[in-house]
Design a protein around this nucleic acid. Structure first.
Lengths: 125, 125
DNA sequence: GTCCGACTTGAACTACGCTTCAAGTCAAGC
DNA sequence: GCTTGACTTGAAGCGTAGTTCAAGTCGGAC
């Protein structure tokens, strides 16, 4: 099997080597082994890193993701956290949608200053 | 006119007094005046703070919001930033929606560990 | 006119998510 | 066998968004 070194993982994942070491310290990834001192990674680490990037984008903290990654279906506390998070995401999606619509409107309206546009304010209130 | 003191603004806005002073330093709000050393605020500041809270929720930084608040319709650079931000929000909304659906699924599936569930991975990939 | 408590200030501290740095190790090419 | 350069480590630093703290200042009730 062809293992990757940290520079390859960094390049393919778009993360800095320092970020990979940081993630390792926090338990998000684990090298397959070492070549001397140097970390070697299984290619699967890239899928793991995609998952991490996705979760980060959805607003999870590093610590939350670390807990996720070791979770089993019997972890009811985790399921509960997930359900809470899903509901939070519902709210976040609604907020972002309103803000996006406000921005699209603001890009064409003529109020001075923009933030005093009644339509803009109505959209975000 | 009935001006508010910082404690009243803090209570009505849900922000800490320290946050109000911080926002002032960054140009997001301005007291109407002073009563001795003490800040007095026009009630309108509350609408301003709602706007700030909303923008923060949509992912704008304090510095970005500060630029927004002084912008006029002739500020084409600002309009451009808004358009970019709207597109970013489209992406964010899509990501969050997928993540939310993944979480809802994860709350009921039986894979060990959860992150290895093919449905889960398919949803977030 | 004195005291209390809420305000004032700047500076230092916090948490998060990394990056940067100094000092050291090691495999490989010459 | 020596140099090079990519890696290693832990510690310190950074940007964002504030909070906390110490020391000081007042407005207002008594």
């Amino acid at each position: 099997m062809t293992l990757l070194d940290i520079a390859e993982v960094a390049e393919k994942s778009g993360l800095a080597p320092s970020a990979l070491r940081f993630y390792e310290k926090r338990g998000l990834v684990e090298p397959a082994g070492r070549n001397g001192l140097r970390r070697t990674y299984h290619p699967d680490v890239l899928r793991r890193l995609d998952l991490v990037a996705c979760a980060r984008g959805a607003g999870f903290t590093i610590a939350e993701i670390a807990r996720f990654l070791v979770a089993t279906p019997s972890d009811d506390a985790l399921r509960a956290r997930m359900a809470v998070k899903a509901t939070e995401l519902d709210d976040a999606i609604a907020r972002l949608t309103r803000m996006r619509d406000s921005l699209r409107h603001a890009a064409t309206c003529d109020h001075v200053p923009l933030v005093e546009c009644p339509d803009f304010k109505a959209a975000i209130a």
